[in-house]
Design a protein around this nucleic acid. Structure first.
Lengths: 165, 165
DNA sequence: CTTATCTCAGCTCTACTGACATAG
DNA sequence: CCTATGTCAGTAAAGCTGAGATAA
């Protein structure tokens, strides 16, 4: 697929001890490992989170899904749009709050999620091939904890001063 | 900086157990945590790898650096270009092999790398705040091993069939 | 002739930002 | 009036691909 995955890449020591660097690298490798597989199934990275979220929570508004996944609402538009086009979800106005787009997973979408999961599992097995089962669990636990602990100093809800103008 | 870092984001269980997903998420969080800091120091993510590589190996050609970092040579052009403009590196033709651009780290570049390191260390301390020192070491070790084990099935050196045409 | 290095142009995807209409 | 939701437009960085010029 790409020429970067192979070849003698031994990053300098300074980089090899930087968590942020290694994280980016690992994420990129994981992405490379999954992207080709997902492409074969006709799915893209970004879809997975949305489908999985809907599968768990049932219907939800775009904003809610975005908040769950940490995706900007403006970016949700295109993602949901694609999923609608593929018939994986249905977008309809919420009768309670007519600002909201209520998103519902279709059967086709659920099936797609299944194909997704299958391919990702296989890719993950490759990625974590030389990890023992215990290490794998530890690794995932650590990533989860990292995720949880990654709260930034100032929560601030984007003020957006409308005061002027 | 962004509205996505805060807010109630608890990803669904299916996602929370997917290493590839958590990796992407963690990498994004790490990126968010460092990006703002680096911006203040006038540096961008991509610069760091190049500077660190040069700091360790001394002068190198663009292709070599790219190979070390897993970055496509075509992308190195712009990165090195920026670094040259900022005065962090010098680009000159290699007298031995005149295809090569020999890249050398300047004093200013070394200083920039220092500022970089400082900010990244701080960001990393935040990111790994609720990790013990031992866990931190384990985590980094695992990421390193992942990196090393992430060789894809077919090494293939980009054939690029010039046979036809 | 083949390969390696560098470069350019173009594309996708992710992410972020600002602005705006509309609903609450 | 202010906030929340969805939308659009534009930007930026990273990554990938194809093509080509030049040097080895």
């Amino acid at each position: 697929v790409s020429s970067n995955s192979d070849s003698s890449d031994h990053a300098p020591g300074a980089l090899r001890s930087r968590a942020f660097w290694l994280l980016g690298r690992a994420a990129r490798d994981a992405h490379r490992a999954t992207a080709s597989r997902l492409f074969e199934v006709g799915l893209k990275q970004g879809y997975y989170g949305v489908l999985a979220t809907l599968d768990e929570t049932g219907a939800a508004s775009q904003a809610e899904i975005g908040r769950c996944l940490g995706v900007d609402p403006s970016d949700m538009v295109a993602i949901i749009g694609h999923l609608v086009q593929d018939g994986y979800v249905i977008r309809e106005l919420d009768s309670e709050d007519r600002r909201r787009n209520s998103i519902t997973l279709t059967e086709s979408g659920r099936a797609a999620l299944g194909r997704f999961d299958l391919e990702i599992s296989k890719a993950e097995d490759e990625l974590l091939a030389n990890f023992s089962q215990a290490e794998r669990a530890t690794f995932i636990e650590m990533l989860t904890r990292l995720d949880r602990g990654a709260r930034l100093p100032e929560p601030q809800t984007r003020p957006r001063d409308r005061t002027r103008s």
